[in-house]
Simulated assay, not measured.
Amino acid sequence: MREIFKQEMQQLGDDLLKQGREAARSMEGAAESLKNANLALAEQVIDADKRIDALERNLDEMGISLLARQAPVAADLRTVVSALRISSTLERMGDLARHVAYVARGRYPERVNSGEVYDLLVEMAEHATIVGHRVAELLDSHDLELAERIEEEDSILDKLHQKSFSLILDEKQHMERQELIDTVLLARYMERYGDHGVSIARRITFLVTGIHAERNMSIGDVALGYEERQ
């Protein structure tokens, strides 16, 4: 019976990693479709969201079944509950990548904007892609240094998001109404993608250390406190 439980826990982790990699690839594809007005790639990202949603449903069913049949405790319970919450967050990250792809598809064959605004959006997409890949790596390794790097990337995205407001309000940009709407939405989508990455980083930190990272406490502080207890 214990062997079956171990196998099911392993499957839970494998499926979560698969979902994380799908969410990372989706943002990477969305970023490329945004940068180069690539219609085919945008369509692929939109279709891929169905796989991410299906993985979340499977993980939900598996996690609830484990809780009901095995009644895990201590670290095992923390693992199952964390997996359920992370899966939900990954589903939202997939949705955000799909939203970016929708905007890119809607402007095809043109790019969503030009000049300084376009450069900013591409830069945000690149950093969001980094967040996605680091989240996938973190799910595989549970390396808390990766968790810190995700927070650093999110800080960059937050600053770029703030910069987008300055550009939007700059009369020199001469943006049309649709370009203005696209810029507001895209900057928000990618900023939120980074926020969800941080949420997962902090969830993994809790899984490893047993300590919750508060809003005013960095992952590095949590890791240090964990090391001092050892």
Rank of each mutant, 00 (worst) to 15 (best):
L16D: 03
S155G: 12
L139P: 00
N36I: 12
L139S: 05
K163L: 02
I219V: 15
D182V: 15
K50P: 01
N113G: 13
I156W: 11
Q7S: 00
D195E: 14
L16Q: 03
D182W: 14
A213C: 12
E123C: 14
S199H: 14
R149C: 09
Q70F: 04
L77D: 04
V112G: 08
K50R: 06
A68E: 03
L34R: 15
I211S: 10
Q10A: 01
D158L: 08
D60V: 06
A136K: 05
D158T: 09
T205S: 10
T129M: 05
D49E: 09
A128H: 14
D14T: 05
H127S: 14
R134E: 10
H161Q: 12
G197P: 08
E61R: 05
T209P: 06
E145N: 11
T89G: 05
L185T: 15
D143H: 14
L180V: 14
E228K: 12
A37P: 10
M175A: 07
A104Y: 13
H142F: 10
Y102W: 12
L139V: 05
I64T: 01
G210H: 02
I64R: 03
M62Q: 05
Q173A: 13
E110T: 11
A75I: 06
A40H: 07
E32N: 06
N58G: 03
Q7R: 03
V135A: 04
R105G: 04
E91A: 03
F165H: 08
R192K: 15
D170C: 03
A48R: 09
Q70L: 02
R69A: 04
A201W: 08
P72G: 00
I46S: 06
M217L: 07
D195S: 12
A23G: 07
F165W: 07
I4D: 00
Q162E: 03
G29I: 06
T89M: 06
A75Q: 05
Q7K: 03
H127Q: 14
I52F: 04
A74W: 00
V117K: 07
Y189L: 15
I219Q: 10
D15A: 02
L185M: 15
L16A: 02
L180S: 10
A68Q: 01
V81L: 00
S26D: 07
A187N: 14
H133F: 08
N36H: 13
M175N: 08
R51F: 03
Q11P: 00
G13D: 02
L67E: 07
R107N: 15
S82W: 01
N58Y: 04
M190V: 15
L77R: 01
M62D: 02
A24L: 04
G115D: 10
L146Y: 11
R57E: 10
A97E: 10
D195K: 13
L39Y: 13
M27D: 09
T209M: 09
G63N: 04
E43M: 06
D53P: 08
I168S: 07
E153Y: 09
A42Y: 10
